[in-house]
Design a protein around this nucleic acid. Structure first.
Lengths: 238, 238
DNA sequence: TCGAACATTATGTCTATACAATAACGAACG
DNA sequence: CGTTCGTTATTGTATAGACATAATGTTCGA
């Protein structure tokens, strides 16, 4: 359990404890790097590393000449883990399977451009999928892929690998924006999930860019309260 | 625009660009600290700072003796900003108001202990609130506060400050877990939001601990698709 | 051929020192 | 009394050197 920690880790832990326990309340001025250096008998660089890390985590704020202060939590920002659907299903201990229901190549129309920031007439691939957990449909996927950004997608059948996983393996690295809403099931979703039209569904919309260029838009619709997203907030991730 | 950056910031930017543009694809081994040291003409500590930061952001993975590698994005973890409800309403440009509808002090029963990890019979304060944006109800709040953790809450009327804001100002620093689901409106919510029973609502449940002790449980229910949560993911925060 | 011992290499951590940038403080001055 | 200006405490950044640690390759021996 108590594995040998590095110096700055144990110092980090100590200071964190002081803040989390309330011994050092929000607004409290914590000792200067110089004082901490003396207190712990370490070099200033080590102390600096700790405080820099605490500041990055939002636990303290630092001002030159003034000192470092325990920050008051204004916006609790939590880390949301967006996992691959296959992984999600596997976590339930159910066999995973998916079907491609729609695969259409076309040029971006007005409606598309509202979803993802594309040039008019840019070639896009429209995809529809259903993901299954065991025998039951788990999630509906509606996706647009910019063929300007990912031309290889035009040739891909997506029989073997789902579009999400395919893109992750192909497109280098991305920034993304997620929007999470509750929506009533449309006729399609109601039939798919065997639920009443208008019943509650969780909709996760994700827009993805790579090197400033739009890559893909996807809307994942999960039935009712059978699915939930979990986000955790902890001062230091670990 | 191009303000004078520090050395490690500009190096960070360069490497990030290489990864995001795809020049260094996932799995690619990036130059060793020693090589980067030579390439940029800086000390190893500076390079180390950059790579450590990239690793913390999840953009690269580091293995002793083997080197540093561009990681393949498996779980895209996004940062979800959980704001104060008052702030959310203010962002809409609407006047904010709230009402306390329920305020009951009692001992934790079985149902409560399923929500928040309390001892049997521990004193809790049960609260119900409705938050308004303009004239329309914006959000329903159901809350349990552990009076062991926050005894002062027993005396507080919550006339002036909503429970969420009150707690943030009082309880030092917390870790929290958020669960986000879509639920059908119960009779109460349907009446409140003037919607059909069973219509889609977004439910955000938050459990909060301070110094390992449970502090509060809150369930926020937002009407239908009138509300959405936004989470962003970017390699380096900034 | 297989496994154990060893060498090598890259990361991980820490120190001591240095100078720069910033902003709070206090003293001098109008 | 208020403003300006220099002083100084504190953080921010960077360097060079050192040793620790881990894991990969390599060599040698059974």
């Amino acid at each position: 359990m108590t594995r040998p920690q590095s110096l700055h880790q144990s110092i980090l832990g100590e200071i964190e404890d002081k803040i989390l326990s309330g011994a050092w309340p929000p607004g409290h001025r914590i000792p200067s790097e110089h004082e901490l250096t003396a207190h712990y008998g370490v070099s200033r660089m080590t102390v600096n590393k700790v405080l820099t890390q605490l500041a990055a985590g939002g636990l303290i704020e630092r001002r030159r000449r003034a000192g470092s202060f325990v920050s008051r939590p204004l916006t609790q920002s939590a880390v949301l883990d967006i996992r691959d659907i296959r992984t999600e299903v596997a976590a339930l201990g159910l066999p995973y399977r998916y079907e491609v229901t729609v695969r259409r190549r076309r040029r971006a129309a007005g409606a598309d451009r509202a979803l993802i920031d594309l040039q008019a007439g840019a070639p896009v691939l429209e995809l529809g999928c259903v993901h299954f957990a065991g025998a039951r449909p788990f999630c509906r996927e509606e996706r647009l892929i910019s063929l300007d950004a990912v031309p290889e997608a035009a040739e891909e059948r997506f029989d073997e690998v789902a579009p999400g996983a395919w893109l992750v393996g192909r497109v280098p690295w991305t920034s993304a924006e997620h929007r999470i809403r509750a929506v009533g099931a449309d006729r399609d979703a109601a039939a798919l999930f065997s639920m009443a039209e208008g019943a509650a569904c969780l909709a996760v919309e994700r827009r993805t860019w790579s090197a400033e260029r739009p890559v893909t838009f996807v809307r994942l619709t999960y039935p009712g309260d059978a699915h939930e997203l979990v986000a955790r907030f902890a001062p230091t991730q670990g």
